[in-house]
Computed example of a mutant assay.
Amino acid sequence: MSGVGAPDFFYREAQRLGYVARSAFKLLQIQKQYKLIKPGSSVLDLGCAPGAWLQVACQSLGPLDNGGSVVGIDIKKVKVPSLHCDARVQTASADVINLPSNQVRALSPKQKGFSVILSDMCPSVSGITTKDAALSVELGMRAVDLALGPAALASPVNNSDSSTDSGVLKPGGHLVIKLLESQDAQGENFRK
């Protein structure tokens, strides 16, 4: 929203198109540019409330007969939005920080993991930009940890067929993480 209480263009457009939040446009733009979610994909949405990324992910799977699945996890209980979602979308209420990877893997089709992991997790915002950005990075690192396994952060080699503590992202899969930016980091380019 721009200004105090004044809906901006994206807020109004999200309402017009039936998305539960303007954040849908972030994932729509990523999907348009990179086409990460394909028909038949298995998608995990971390921090899925209020459900806009669930809507875009399900739409990106194409018609119901294409298959695929979308699982959303959030600390809050999230109802699957009725528009743009179908039977392929389910949600679970859990604290991702404390959720073991084997429980997340159990939510995936045939317990084989996910081909796309989306993280739009956001900490409770304090208004202190450096603190909020640091908490956001912590949540982002948790998404990496879940996706690739804890060894991936400690070692440059990812042993993907190791123990039960391996990540839930399938080999060749895609990981998208949204982070809050602090004023200290603005203007710097962190892209690879």
Rank of each mutant, 00 (worst) to 15 (best):
V4C: 08
P156S: 08
D86V: 02
F190H: 13
Q59Y: 00
S42V: 01
V157N: 14
S42K: 02
L179Y: 08
V176K: 01
Q183L: 14
S82V: 15
S41I: 01
N158V: 15
I97Q: 15
D132F: 07
A49W: 05
V80M: 11
T129L: 10
V104Q: 03
G140Y: 03
V176P: 05
A134W: 15
L36G: 00
V89R: 05
L46M: 11
G172K: 08
V176C: 04
P100S: 05
K76W: 00
D8L: 08
E138K: 05
L36W: 04
L27I: 02
Q103V: 02
E138W: 00
A87H: 10
S23D: 05
F25K: 03
I75D: 04
E188A: 11
G72D: 01
G47F: 04
I128Y: 14
G113H: 03
L44Y: 04
Q111A: 12
K178R: 06
V89Q: 04
S82H: 11
V70C: 03
I75T: 07
Q31I: 08
K32T: 09
S60F: 01
L61M: 01
R16M: 08
S124I: 14
S163L: 10
L27K: 01
D120I: 01
N189I: 03
N102S: 13
D8V: 01
F190T: 04
Q31L: 07
G62C: 06
L83E: 12
S82Y: 06
S101F: 00
H174W: 08
N158F: 09
Q186S: 11
S93M: 15
G51N: 14
